[in-house]
Each structure stands twice: as C-alpha cells, then as structure tokens.
C-alpha cells in the first residue's frame, strides 16, 4: 500500500505522506500556513492556535492534526483569515507588547504575522496585565510582559546532559514562565543565545545584545513571513 495520500487545501489538490501533520504537508507542497508555536524538530504543541484551519467544517490546529485521504482543508478563506487575525490580536492585548521599545522588534514572529495580515489595531480592549521583568541568570532576562506561552523554550532548550531549563508555573491568566536556577551553571553563551533565538517574541532576552541589528536590516524588514512559499 502506498503511503501517499491526496487532500486539498483551499481547493488545491496536494499529495502528502501518511502520518504527516497538515502543517508539514502544506510546507512540503509550498503552501503557507502561518505558525507561531511550531519550531523545527520540535513535537507540535498546539499552544498558539495561529495555524487554525477548517477541516470538513470543523476548526482544528493544522500543526496537531494528521492528514487523511480526501481531507478538505480551508486555509486562507475569509473566515479562517479573520479567525487567525482575532487570535493574533488576542495575543497582543493579553500581554504588554510595546514594539517600539522591544529588542526583538523586526525579528519578532508575532509582529511578523500581524504585518502579514496587515493588522493596524486589535478589535479587543487592551488588558494591560501586571507583569514583571526578571533577571534570572547572568546571561538571561525573562520579560514576562511579552511571553505568549508558546512553550518553544520549554520544549526546545536542553542542557548538554539533556535536562530542561524552562517551565511554566501556575495556570490560566496566572501562568508564568520560569527558569530552573539549579541549571544556571549549565547555561553557557551558546545556550543562552539559543534560548533567546527560540523565543518567537522578546520574552527571553540575552543580556548585552540590545538593539544590535539596525532598522532596515532585521529579518522581517527584508522579507515578509511566509514570503518564500508559493513561489
């Protein structure tokens, strides 16, 4: 039996491998589905919901749903685009995202997806939650105002002996990113840079870097997120 199956995304017929997720299949077929909590080589977590698509009339996350034969996926329909914009807008109002003062601005994936959808202002009221800035390590700061709880750092950052460094404490609106300080000695310059890099927003900041890349030369100054797809 062949392990190749056929499905459609926005009416376009694509071939996928059995066992792939919708996001992986779309990527292989040069179709852009925006993602935020998804990161190369990490098991999908489905925390951000940005990749929401409609499958056979139901809204599901494309990163956590496996392809099936004959599946009909709605990706860039008016309804799903609006749903995604609403999710992005919620992520903005639920934190304190002060782009003009953020070191990650221009390299931030949340901002990049908001640009992709040409969002000018959120439809929801700003919550201005009370959050703090915390120095957790000689090399790292946690800027809780900007954390979107995607868990990329929790899933992707490991010390050399394979131990996790980041975790979340509390639940619901009290949820907060924490760093295991007993692992402080295992965090070298390289791992600190990796932690700052794996964060899609500016919640994990490597000290002593600041605004190192001039405006105009940052990642999303030069290219639009998802731009390489469909070419």
């Amino acid at each position: 039996m062949s392990n190749e199956i056929q499905l459609t995304i926005d009416g376009k017929s694509i071939v996928a491998k059995l066992g792939q997720t919708i996001v992986e299949a779309a990527r292989d077929n040069n179709v852009y589905i925006p993602t935020l909590c998804d990161f190369k080589n990490l098991t999908p977590a489905g925390t951000c919901r940005v990749c929401s698509v409609k499958v056979d009339g139901r809204v599901v996350v494309a990163c956590g749903t496996r392809v099936a034969s004959g599946m009909v996926v709605e990706n860039e329909s008016a309804e799903m685009t609006d749903t995604r914009k609403a999710i992005i807008e919620m992520l903005f109002v639920e934190g304190n995202h002060m782009c003009p003062t953020c070191e990650k601005s221009g390299n931030c994936e949340l901002q990049a997806i908001a640009y992709h959808y040409r969002i000018t202002a959120p439809r929801f009221p700003f919550l201005f939650p009370k959050k703090s800035l915390e120095s957790v390590h000689p090399l790292l700061m946690l800027e809780h105002n900007r954390c979107i709880q995607c868990r990329r750092c929790v899933r992707g950052i490991r010390t050399k002996d394979g131990k996790g460094v980041f975790a979340f404490k509390n639940r619901s609106n009290n949820i907060e990113l924490i760093m295991d300080k007993s692992r402080a000695d295992d965090i070298d310059d390289e791992l600190a840079a990796a932690a700052a890099n794996i964060c899609p927003v500016g919640a994990i900041i490597k000290k002593g870097v600041g605004f190192s890349t001039p405006i105009g030369e940052r990642t999303f100054d030069k290219q639009q997120i998802g731009e390489s797809y469909g070419k």
Binding site: N96, P100, T101, A121, F126, F128, P129, K130, K131
Partner: peptide, 18 residues
C-alpha cells in the same frame, strides 16, 4: 484617525499602566 502607537495602544506612556 489614530496616528501612531501611542494613540492606538497607549505607547510608551502606557508603560506606567500596571
């Protein structure tokens, strides 16, 4: 028309919110 981040989301002055 709201022009700029401060009009749209409070901007830098809103860093005192909280």
């Amino acid at each position: 028309v709201s022009l700029g981040e401060c009009a749209i989301m409070g901007g830098l002055p809103a860093m005192r919110n909280g």
